[in-house]
Simulated assay, not measured.
Amino acid sequence: MSDMTFLEQVKTNYPSQYYGILSEGKIQTFVDVWGGIDISGAAFSVLTLGAASAMAALTAEQWALAQIRSVSGLLNVFVSGVAVQYGGRFYCDSSTPCAVYDMWGFGTIDGLPPEASLHAMTPEQYADRQAKPRDQYYDATTASLQDYTPAPVAVPLKTQAATAQAWIQQQANLAAAMGEAFTADMKAYVKAVNAIASGADTTSTALPAQPADVMMASAATS
């Protein structure tokens, strides 16, 4: 007669505490074999279980992950043989900004990125992203998500010059209406901007500063 307790016998036959009972390539039921309960807390008979080798052994972390409700309302943990695919559940990719995934919340994983190409996220990081949607990227140095701010788009110098020419034309129209003329500084500015816009100036890296004095009063007539 064995001196082992029933729990000790269970642990011998089921060395992992948590298992997934499989059906059609995914986990149908999550069970805490040592505790005699399923994922909902309902009791079940360990004697009804099949062999441990026919089930997916789960870690305590995966058991906890399975208790998190998905945004989609689905809980599909797909397996390859008896091995859980996407064992970390929450992932992001390497794009900037990155996409995030709850890999247990899909109806199928066909067409989804392979796990090897993704970075695991914590449930807290995923929940934060859902609560506050924003652009982020995966920082490999800190192994964490960081908020992403795109770099300012550089406006080509010739485009800046074209914009400056539009302003110059406004000033020329105003000067004509008021009977005034451009100052020497303004004339020099117009010449420099036109050279950049036409491509004659290929060495400048920035527009000249707009002159402080644009127009001078026309000479008084007797």
Rank of each mutant, 00 (worst) to 15 (best):
G35H: 05
G111V: 01
A43G: 00
T163S: 13
V100L: 15
E124F: 08
G25R: 03
Q165D: 05
V77I: 12
L74H: 09
V77P: 02
V33E: 07
T142H: 12
A151Y: 04
V46E: 12
S72D: 00
P123V: 07
D32V: 03
H119T: 00
S80G: 15
V82C: 12
Q85N: 10
S70K: 01
E124R: 09
A140E: 14
L75N: 14
G88R: 13
I109G: 06
R89G: 01
T122V: 02
T96M: 11
S144T: 15
I37F: 10
G41N: 09
V79Y: 11
D32N: 15
L157E: 07
V155K: 14
D38F: 00
P156L: 08
R89V: 02
A57Y: 03
A52D: 13
Q165N: 14
I39Q: 07
V100Q: 04
A151Q: 14
A143P: 00
F106L: 10
E124Q: 14
I37R: 13
T96N: 05
E24L: 12
Y138V: 06
F30M: 07
Y126M: 11
F78L: 05
G105I: 01
G73S: 07
V46I: 15
Q169F: 10
D110T: 12
E124K: 12
T59A: 08
A56L: 06
A131Y: 00
T59S: 15
A66K: 02
G111H: 06
I109D: 13
G87V: 04
A42T: 13
C92Y: 05
A140C: 04
D147G: 09
V153L: 11
F44N: 06
D110K: 12
T149W: 04
A57I: 03
A164Y: 04
S80H: 14
I37Q: 12
I39A: 11
Q169L: 14
E24I: 06
Q67S: 13
F44G: 07
A140T: 15
T29G: 00
S144I: 01
T122S: 15
P97G: 08
S72K: 01
L157W: 09
D139Y: 05
G25H: 04
S40I: 00
Y148I: 06
S45R: 12
T96E: 13
S80Q: 15
I68G: 00
K158S: 13
D93A: 05
W34P: 02
Q165A: 00
P114C: 01
T142L: 09
A166C: 01
H119A: 07
P113W: 08
K158H: 11
I68M: 02
N76F: 02
G105K: 02
T149P: 00
G105H: 04
V31W: 07
S40R: 12
Y101A: 05
E115A: 10
S70Y: 01
Y86D: 04
G50W: 12
Y148V: 08
A162F: 12
Q85D: 11
D38G: 00
W104A: 10
G36I: 07
L65K: 01
